[in-house]
């Protein structure tokens, strides 16, 4: 039995036929929609490499059944830059060496975007570390990642102040 679902992926509406309800959002993105930027690390909700935004909130796409998310709005690492202009969070990871091998980086960046939207951590490194603890980096680039998040947070605060000025 096939199931039809509709997803908005990076701003584009997609009508999808699922021939099996077992497909996770992660596998749907990677295997069916050719969006391989979202990584499959542990596939068990422990590493955060598969982090995406669903309806504006960061979640582990490996534990989300696609069929249960009919109508959802999905944003992946492929959907955040504007052409050649990097998203401010992507840009912040570069000067701070917020990665080494890069495998966890899409998840780290999507998680950071989620963290900044949640607005709970502010510029407190300890709150950032807690808020990013669902994203493992086996190269151990954590110090650079926290610095990158701090810069992205500062840039977001600056641009908000400029807008309201």
């Amino acid at each position: 039995m096939t199931h039809s679902i509709s997803l908005t992926v990076n701003g584009t509406k997609r009508e999808i036929e699922l021939n099996d309800p077992r497909v996770t959002l992660l596998d749907l993105l990677r295997e069916r929609l050719d969006l391989t930027g979202t990584k499959k690390g542990c596939d068990r909700g422990q590493c955060g490499a598969c982090t995406i935004l669903v309806d504006g909130k960061r979640i582990n796409s490996c534990l989300a059944l696609a069929i249960s998310h009919d109508g959802a709005e999905v944003v992946t690492i492929e959907g955040i830059a504007r052409g050649d202009q990097l998203h401010p969070v992507q840009a912040a990871f570069i000067p701070h060496d917020g990665f080494q091998c890069g495998f966890c980086t899409p998840g780290q960046i999507m998680s950071t975007i989620g963290l900044l939207c949640e607005g709970q951590a502010g510029d407190d490194p300890e709150r950032i570390r807690e808020g990013m603890s669902g994203n493992l980096c086996r190269c151990g680039a954590y110090a650079g990642i926290v610095d990158a998040v701090l810069e992205a947070q500062a840039n977001q605060t600056d641009s908000k102040q400029r807008r309201s000025a």
């Binding site: 909700g45 998680s111 989620g114 949640e118 808020g131 603890s133 994203n135």
Partner: peptide, 9 residues
Amino acid sequence: GASAQLRNA
């Protein structure tokens, strides 16, 4: 409990 991603879901 858990991580921010898991708490969101």
